[in-house]
Write a protein that binds this DNA or RNA. Sequence first.
RNA 1: GGGGCGGUAGCUCAGCCGGUCAGAGCAUCGGACUCAUAAUCCGUGGGUCGUGGGUUCAAGUCCCACCCGCCCUACCA
Length: 528
Amino acid sequence: MAATGTTASGESAYYVTTPIYYVNDAPHLGHAYTTVAGDVLTRWHRQRGEKVWYLTGTDEHGQKVMRTAEANGVTPQEWCDKLVEDAWKPLWEHLQIANDDFIRTTEPRHTDRVQEFVQDLYEKGEIYKGGYEGPYCVACEEYKSPGDLLEGDLCPIHKRPVEWLKEENYFFRLSAYGERLLEFYERNPDFIRPASARNEVVSFVKQGLQDLSISRSTFDWGVPIPWDTKHVIYVWIDALLNYATAVGYGSDQEKFDATWPANIHLVGKDILRFHAVIWPAMLMANGLSLPRGVFANGWLMVGGEKMSKSNLTGISPRELTEHFGVDAYRYYFLRAIPFGQDGSFSWEDFSARYTSELANDFGNLASRVAAMVGKYFEGTLPEATDAGPAEQAIADGLAAAAAQADTLIGDNLDFSAGIGAIFEFVKQVNGYLSDQAPWKVAKDESPEGQARLATILYTAAESLRAIAVLLHPVMPGTSAKLWASLGAEPHLGALADQRIADVATWGGLPAGAQVVKGEILFPRLENA
RNA sequence: GGGGCGGUAGCUCAGCCGGUCAGAGCAUCGGACUCAUAAUCCGUGGGUCGUGGGUUCAAGUCCCACCCGCCCUACCA
C-alpha cells in the first residue's frame, strides 16, 4: 500500500498518531521529538493535498499518577488536568504542532468506548478470569520477573526479600495470536519500521506469547471492568484503544470510516512491542482492521548517554527553543539524527548546524537575494528573459530535490535525508549566485546585461519560492517569513495551500512580485 | 546466559555481495569575491579503518578470539 498521489474523496485520511504520553511528568525532549516528527510528516501529507488526521494525547490512568497526585495533595483528575493544561498542551502549541485532536484517556468519549470494547471481547471469549502470582516487592509495590531476582529471592532494587503474592486478574488470550501475527508481519514487511525494530518483534513473537493480564484490583484509578467493577483496566487495553476512540470508534461511524485505520503509529522504541504485538492482536480479536504501520524512533543520547529520567530533565525543550528558536528546534533533531536510529546530540552540535546550515546557507541566501532585488530593481521582481544552461541546471536541481524529499520524508519517514536533499538545493543556489555574480553583471548597463541580471535574480527568487514550500512542514514560521519576503501570497495564495506536486514547476513566482528584505531568518547566536 | 547492533579523519557519520574504499558534511588552514547574517564560492591538510590472529594474488569489506559501548530476552508510560 504505497502512498502515492492524492487521496480520492471517500478514502480514509492519512492518519498518524503519537503515543499518548503518560502525564506523570512534564513533557521532555523525547516526547517532543516524536511529536515534532509526526507534525512534519502530517504537514507534508497535507501539502500533498491529502486528507490528514494527526492525533496526540495523554495517558492518565494508573498507579503512578495516583501516587503523584496524592503526594501533591490533589485528586488524580485534578493532577492530570493541571499538567495537561499547564504543561502538555502549551508545549505543543509552542512547538507549532498542528494536531487535529488531543485525546485524554479520562474523557468519557474514551472510557465509555473502552468499556464497550472489553465487554465485547469478554462476550467473545477473548477475556477470561485468572490469577497472577509471582514475587512481589513491597518497597517497589510491583511484581518482579522471577528472572530478575537476585540470589535468595531478593529484589534487585531494594535487596530485600520478595513476597509471593497472588492476585485475581482478567486475561486477554494473547497467546492465541502468535501465528496470526507472524503471518501478518510476513505479508506486510513494512508494518514495523525500521527493519531492526521489525526483527526484534518477530523474534520476540517467535518465542511464544503468553496471555496478558489486563486488570488490576489493587488500585482504582482506571476504567472499571464493566461486569466486575472491583477491577480497573490496566494500561494496555486502555491506552492503546485511544487510537480508535479518538476517531469515533463506537460513537461516530462516519468519522471512523473516514479515518481508520492509522497509516502510521509513531512510537518510541520502548513501547514498540505493545504497538506491534498487543495492539494488532486486540484489533484482530475485535475484528477491526489493522494499522498500516508502526514506526519506532530511537533514543536521544546526550554526550553518548541515553537520556534517562534523570538527565532528561537536564535540558528542556523550552531551554532549547529560547536559545535557538522553535523552527531551528524542529529542524535540528530531524536533520541531525536519522529517524529510527538512536542519535546523540549536543548543544555544540546544535549550534554548529544552526550557524552553518540555517544561518549561513539558508538564511543568508534569502537575505542576499532579497537585498539584490531591492537594490537593483527597487524590490519588484523582474522577468527572466535570458535564461540559459545555468538556469536550467537550477530548475533541474529543484526537480530532483523535490522528488527526493517527497519520497524520503513523505513515504520513508527519512527526515534527515529528505531535509538534506532540500539543503543540497539551497547550496546549489548559493553556488549559482557565486558563479553568475549578479553584483558584477549589474555594472553592465546594456540591455543584454540588464536582461542577464534580471534573469539571475528571478532564478534565485523563484528558487526561494520553492524552498519556502518544501521547508514549510519542517519550519512553518520561517517559511512564512520567507513567503512574505518574496511577496508570494498575493499571487500564489497561502503557503500552506502550495502543493508538493507543483513545487518544482518552474515559474510559479510571477514577475512583479514585491520582494522585501524582511527580518533576518536566523539571527546569529549569542555566545555561540 | 542466549540473540542482535556498533567501535572508520577533531566532531557526526557513508562505505552493498572482498580488488581507485580510504570517503562526505562540519570544524581547521589557504585563495577568490563583496550581493548578503564577518555570510558565499573554490581548494589544502588530516585517519595504525577497536585489538590480535587467520583465509586470499588482494580485507574497514570474509573467518576466529578478545576489549569497549548499546539494544532485545513480556506485563514500568
